[in-house]
Simulated scan of single mutants.
Amino acid sequence: MTRSEFDDIRAHIAAEEGDCDDLLQIARTLLDDLEQARLREATLRARYMGLLTAARATMASDAVGDIDPLTFLRHELGKRGQLPTGDEEVTRILSDARTAETLLAHLEEKPQSRPRAGARMRRCAGAARRLPR
């Protein structure tokens, strides 16, 4: 949604005030939450793009034999205070990276096949289950 669409919705809500004040308050709150989520997403996308650009520039710099190819990445991480500072932090970061790599590998694996529709499985929970009388 664009900023003007949010403003249009807010204007519509303001014009409807009257009998349903509670519902309109909920609508305003949801709209505010949606706008904040949109802003956070835009911020994360921009930061991701900066990090991706720095990583690509680092690799390109390394490919041409630059003396210090990590300059771009070091600068981007330094802006956010994300550079490792001590041996303990370096060890933790490397451990986290290995764990993340393992988790991502599991996510990319082919999912297990589901049982066929003909082979119904009994389920013990669910909203449709009724207790015997």
Rank of each mutant, 00 (worst) to 15 (best):
R114K: 12
K79G: 11
A46C: 05
M121E: 13
G65T: 06
I13Q: 09
A15L: 07
T29W: 01
T43D: 12
I93C: 08
Q25W: 09
E89Y: 07
Y48P: 00
T2C: 03
E16N: 15
K79V: 09
M59K: 00
M1H: 13
T99I: 05
R3F: 13
E89R: 09
L44T: 06
R123D: 15
L34M: 04
A42K: 00
L107Y: 13
M1A: 11
R114N: 10
R45W: 05
G126F: 08
R130I: 05
S61K: 03
L39K: 01
T2P: 00
R74D: 11
A27C: 12
D8A: 12
G50L: 15
L103C: 08
H12L: 14
M49A: 15
S113D: 11
P115W: 02
A128T: 13
A27I: 04
D7E: 15
R116A: 15
R129Y: 05
E101N: 09
I9N: 05
D33W: 00
T91F: 09
A14D: 14
R129M: 11
R122K: 11
A97R: 07
L44K: 04
E109D: 08
R56W: 01
L77M: 04
D96M: 04
A117W: 01
Q112N: 11
S61Q: 07
